[in-house]
Nucleic acid binder design. Structure first.
Lengths: 106, 106
DNA sequence: TGATTATATGTAGATATCTTCATATGTCAA
DNA sequence: TTGACATATGAAGATATCTACATATAATCA
């Protein structure tokens, strides 16, 4: 199980892929809209979309010439938000520690 | 923000590190117990502990000769469990699709 | 003090990942 | 059918990560 989970977390472990999910969280979207949103080369974005697709995090559907992507399971979005909360809390703790250290030094 | 989050997810993106957290989720624990639990070289486990520590996912404390590690924020455990649910659900969906495909072929 | 134990750190080869460029595939329209 | 467009795939160099080995540090004990 840790192997599968590690691979799933790995799929989330890239800024560009998280940015793709930031775009998709508000609703399904065409690749032609994802590329300008995240920035960077078309082929690079396509490679990252493939990684998310292979991890089962997004699914794709052809509509004419376009390909539309969507988040496969909204719990993934919850999971990403939970990570954001952890990070912010962590920053807050560091700040509090720093503040009390400064205060103790007068 | 996507950079910080990507780095945090990256810290979870390794089977050995997830196994360490599996050990720590039930309570703080000495390195000397973690090593036999996860298996592998002492130095390798130590490197992975350092990665988790630098990511703020665990914290360490020296107790005599030993070093005890603990999960820094229990929400990380919730997050990992949520990922497990997503994966299981995904597997279930694939299985259901396969089953209905087989049925449709009689 | 010197030996032993527990853990961390430095290093290097092996392996994986990322990015870019080139090209392939599939769809539509003339 | 030919050309244009949208997207995917293949390949290769650059970069990062992993593992194992050797060594360093720090605490304890004889």
């Amino acid at each position: 199980m840790t192997g599968k989970k590690a691979r799933a977390f790995n799929a989330l472990a890239h800024p560009l892929r998280l940015k793709i999910l930031e775009k998709l969280r508000v609703g399904p979207c065409c690749v032609c809209k994802i590329i300008p949103y995240v920035g960077g080369e078309q082929s690079n974005v396509s490679h990252h979309l493939a990684i998310l697709r292979n991890a089962g995090i997004v699914r794709s559907e052809k509509r004419g010439q376009e390909v539309w992507y969507a988040v496969a399971d909204s719990r993934i979005i919850k999971l990403i938000d939970l990570m954001e909360i952890c990070i912010l809390e962590n920053l807050k703790k560091s700040r509090d520690m720093f503040d009390s250290l400064m205060k103790s030094m007068q």
